[in-house]
Design a protein around this nucleic acid. Structure first.
Lengths: 339, 339
DNA sequence: AGTCGTCGTATTAACGTTCTTATAACGATT
DNA sequence: AATCGTTATAAGAACGTTAATACGACGACT
């Protein structure tokens, strides 16, 4: 059997109707009487006809496809996000074209260009850098529907995100309230310009009249378990050891926990640990880890909704709106000893 | 600024050349002299022209897009796979359209149809069920390029995969050699028809003259940490307790490990544990877990290569070929006590 | 001087849809 | 009997690109 590309024309030839009649019939137009429609429908079925999305897109000027740009899908929470987004979009008849920027700004720009060339109807972007958003702003300026999955209130771009500052604030407060004042921070924010977590951390310190010791902040140079392990090693070889730790994500926290375990530092007695994202592995770690929850479904639903709004907007393109979701802190044994 | 769709026509109008000349020039055809090309290139740049992929696809009859079907991306190893595939395809100029079947055969079929309608040039499929592949076989019969990421030597469909049977065999042998004969198995294979791991497990038993006790096989009804935890609970409440465990993936193994930790069963002394996939969390678990390595890069490279072969094949469509990669067993503290 | 390539560019026809408009055929209305 | 709607269908154009072919102009042969 050769590769058969069945077109409307083929159905038309077989049924004796014109291409146009077939097209209308298959779209159940009332302009075509029911019995004609039936005949055509059956012929289409028999020939295993599949409408050519490409041709349709060319005339309708919409591809029913959106582009999803992630930095690096290996972070479990981004994975969940990707899957939830794909599902939400599929429900609305949209396909998901995905690409990773690999945490490189140049690549991010290239990916966005590629998506534009592929005529995606909109994009959901998890940008690598929270401050270099010019290329995305430019996109929005031409009324291209874009929603960021990271919240920068001042970026002038639609965004739906967890309020990381608030999350870090809550986590840090919790650590302070449970008696810690020397709190380490594992966060690689500096270079990337996403200072949200760091800001929340500092805010909690300021509010309690404590001062932040810069020596307690270590850049793990990544976000994997092993990076967390070594960052913890660095942190603990300092002059003064902290008694608690805030890690920018759960993988880092797990790495830190492992370091403690290996070096005879008991958690939470000698070291309280808080992570970010609340992934399953944090919940079921050797010591269950307190974590700032990432409400995946809420973020993705709101983001997709917003994107649909922008796509449907037409000429009266709405003002950018940033939605920040206040995350809960899930308290577990890594910060509060079990009774 | 209104949404501006710049076409070849617009560049043609601006430069005074015809559409065709512009098209050729932008594709650096030698039929157009260099200075003309330069003028056109500059105009295109100035107008921020992006070729319309859709229109191009319609005439070239290829979309430079492939469809990736996964069951469920939350398994970290599938995540890695997805990312590696996206990268490998991007390098070759292909976009990746992805969708999850959510472990449902109906959905898998729908997704495949959807991809076909979107005219993807080929598909990479991680099928839900290793025995219900008729719809995919039908695809192949029309010379549609498809490569499975699961190896069934008899399916008559191209596939590149880890040899799971061999992996399970090696793992089980290792457990037997380290003195275990009562080995639990956490695997939900029965319903899904992917018996590879179970077969390898049984083969190792047969080879050693041991008999398989069906009571030692538990279906965890999923593949998350918590499912592993409860499956372990079930397994350990049986009449006879095993002294070792083979888990179909690392998440299950981590759940089982956690159960042991909570119930005072020491690993590996009282319970040796082997997982599958060798994810980072297994390496850095409370007790580092012995695991069958999943050589992601090798699988994805070979799969993408094969897919490209099929896409380039034209009329002489090659016979189906199944490539199984023999995986290594990474031995860690969960099966061999630390010296 | 006339024919022949070559060069640079333009014209035309695809690709498979959908949208807009046209056209018969037929009843009903005046 | 002429006009007017309706109904069922068809013809034609468009979407933005590429491929195949056409067409002048010019220089170089014979």
């Amino acid at each position: 059997m050769a590769r058969s590309i069945i077109r409307l024309k083929d159905i038309a030839d077989r049924t004796g109707f014109s291409v146009n009649t077939v097209s209308l019939a298959l779209r159940e137009s009332t302009r075509i009487p029911e019995d004609t429609r039936l005949v055509i429908r059956q012929a289409a079925q028999a020939m295993n006809y599949q409408p050519n999305h490409i041709a349709r897109s060319l005339v309708s000027r919409e591809t029913k496809t959106i582009g999803l740009v992630l930095t690096d899908i290996t972070n479990p929470i981004l994975t969940h996000t990707a899957q939830a987004i794909e599902l939400a979009l599929a429900e609305r008849g949209y396909g998901t074209l995905f690409a990773t920027s690999n945490n490189d700004l140049e690549e991010e720009i290239k990916v966005v260009e590629m998506f534009r060339s592929r005529q995606v109807d909109g994009m959901l972007i998890y940008p690598r850098n929270h401050r270099f958003l010019d290329h995305i702003r430019r996109l929005r300026a031409t009324h291209y529907p874009v929603v960021l999955l990271v919240g920068d209130p001042d970026a002038g771009i639609d965004a739906v995100s967890v309020d990381e500052r608030r999350g870090a604030y809550k986590a840090t407060r919790h650590l302070i309230e449970t008696g810690n004042s020397k709190i380490g921070l594992l966060d690689g924010a500096n270079l990337l310009g996403n200072r949200e977590k760091r800001d929340g951390y500092q805010q909690a310190f300021a509010e309690s009249g404590l001062t932040v010791d810069p020596a307690f902040t270590v850049d793990p140079q990544g976000h994997t378990v092993i990076k967390g392990y070594w960052a913890m090693d660095t942190l603990m070889s300092g002059r003064v050891r902290p008694t608690a730790l805030l890690a920018a994500n759960d993988s880092l926290a797990i790495g830190a926990l492992r370091w403690c375990q290996k070096n005879g530092v008991s958690v939470p007695e000698q070291m309280a640990i808080v992570g970010f994202d609340n992934i399953e592995f944090a919940e079921h770690a050797a010591t269950p880890i307190t974590s700032v929850n990432y409400p995946v479904a809420m973020v993705t639903d709101l983001a997709v909704d917003r994107l649909m709004r922008l796509i449907g907007a037409g000429d009266d393109f709405p003002e950018a709106r940033v939605t920040l979701i206040d995350p809960d802190l899930i308290i577990r044994a890594s910060t509060v000893g079990v009774a």
